[in-house]
């Protein structure tokens, strides 16, 4: 896997922009000296990222515009399942029925699969145990959550992220 030469200019500029905005917001001081050091720091960070193959997969860029909508949906999902898990933990009988589910990711790109895996882990009640070649192994706290997962809404939405 060659890592040099294939970095696209838009991706590099986007990272530079994000880093510069982070610097300005973290710093909050707008003296010329510090801003100059900030420019130096951002360039150094981007250079390090370049050397470390940050821009190896390009898919990330195309996912970005649809991410906010996905997050909004995920947020509601997290809130709903949190209440469920909290109720289970607080019930004296603790009605858990741990279940393993194998799931095939509908997302093709690496970034899409990672978003899917992490979304599953983020929502309480489901944890991704393994993600390998597009197959996920998911541990669910109850059988109901497992059934819901197999219905595949998360997977569908994560895959929809990368459709252009």
């Amino acid at each position: 896997m060659s890592q040099h030469g294939e970095a696209q200019l838009p991706a590099v500029l986007l990272l530079l922009l994000v880093l510069a905005v982070s610097w300005v917001l973290w710093s909050g001081l707008y003296k010329p000296l510090l801003l100059g050091l900030g420019v130096f720091s951002c360039l150094l960070s981007v250079y390090m990222a370049l050397r470390m193959g940050f821009f190896r997969n390009q898919a990330m860029m195309s996912l970005l515009p649809r991410l906010p909508g996905y997050w909004w949906w995920l947020l509601r999902e997290i809130a709903r399942s949190s209440v469920e898990v909290a109720r289970i933990i607080l019930k004296p009988s603790m009605p858990i029925s741990p279940t393993l589910v194998e799931l095939a990711s509908q997302a093709d790109s690496e970034a899409g699969q990672v978003i899917l895996g992490n979304s599953i882990t983020l929502s309480p009640g489901t944890v991704t145990l393994d993600l390998h070649e597009g197959k996920l192994l998911v541990h669910c706290l109850t059988r109901d959550t497992a059934r819901e997962l197999q219905a595949g809404e998360v997977s569908r939405r994560a895959a929809a992220l990368e459709r252009n």
């Binding site: 949190s82 909290a86 933990i89 983020l122 929502s123 309480p124 944890v127 706290l141």
Partner: peptide, 19 residues
């Protein structure tokens, strides 16, 4: 503390981690 084994305890941890 309450949940019986490692894999189920992860779920409790993820409750505090995210929500």
């Amino acid at each position: 503390l309450r949940l019986p084994n490692f894999y189920t305890r992860i779920h409790a941890a993820s409750l505090t981690d995210t929500m």
